[in-house]
């Protein structure tokens, strides 16, 4: 019989996802938006091959598609609003 003896990790300040404000275990994004940003980065090559479009045009087109996941849309909304592409290279 044991007791969970380690005290809980104290809440770390300033570890907030820049997209939704939730706690993030690492970096600028929480788990959800980190996964979405990775998909977004990976998806560009297919759209570039298909339409030869810029990254900004790509974001606009993907945002319109109903198949696009909600977390991806939230990442796009953040990028468009903040003009901050740094989270894509996270």
């Amino acid at each position: 019989m044991g007791v969970l003896s380690e005290p809980g990790v104290p809440k770390q300040q300033n570890k907030k996802c820049v997209v939704c404000g939730s706690y993030s275990e690492e970096g600028l994004l929480c788990f959800k938006h980190r996964t979405a940003a990775k998909s977004l980065t990976e998806g560009y090559k297919y759209w570039k091959e298909a339409f030869n479009i810029s990254f900004n045009e790509y974001l606009k087109e993907v945002r319109k598609r109903p198949e696009t996941g909600v977390w991806v849309k939230e990442v796009i909304d953040y990028i468009v609003a903040s003009n901050d592409l740094s989270i894509i290279s996270e």
Binding site: K32, T35, K38, S39, L40, G43, A50, G69, W71, V72
Partner: peptide, 12 residues
Amino acid sequence: ESEINSYVPKPY
């Protein structure tokens, strides 16, 4: 759920 929410469609 994570796959659906982080899905980026590919055109063809």
